[in-house]
Amino acid sequence: MRLFNRILVTLLLVAWLIIGIFGVLYAFRWLGYSIYDFPGQVRASSFYRGTVAWVRSIDAGTPGPWTVIICVALIILGLLLLYLELWPRRPDRVRLGEGTWATRRLVAAEAVSAASEQPDVLVASARVKPLRRGGAKLGVSVSARRGTDLAALRQGVQEGVRDRMEAVGIPISGLKVRTTQVDPRRAEVRVR
């Protein structure tokens, strides 16, 4: 995940540039600017008072409960943003080998097709989770009519999907099959 995109970085650098220019003007007293006049020019006296009071309360070891809560929340938020920024993105395609990829849609469609070949399956769907090391994790959900032997169906779907993926050449690291029983009249496909 990349939170700090080009627009944000551009705005940050522009702000940095402006601060730098004014820093130089104030530091060398160019164009009549003096660092002593800065708080007055930005009308920061009220802000200063609040800030000084807050810093003194921290220094004295008597921060208010809301101060502690906000500081902890900011620390957690900062760590979370840092984690999201540094953690590499999950691939959105399934890597089959060096420089070879398949779309998640393709893998899901193959899994659904293989699962639907089982005689008792009314409806099938699949979720694909590409792995960074290559291959994918598959979650297949199938529905069958009431009274179906779900354990046998699960095993049949697992074998069918694994065989199809092996034949097509898609490496699968984990395959979970979820079975449910439905009323055939409510199934989204024609009952066989």
Binding site: L96, G99, T100, A102, T103, R105, L106, A109
Partner: peptide, 10 residues
Amino acid sequence: KQVNVVVDDL
């Protein structure tokens, strides 16, 4: 140049 192949669909 490096060649990457993406299989979009069957």
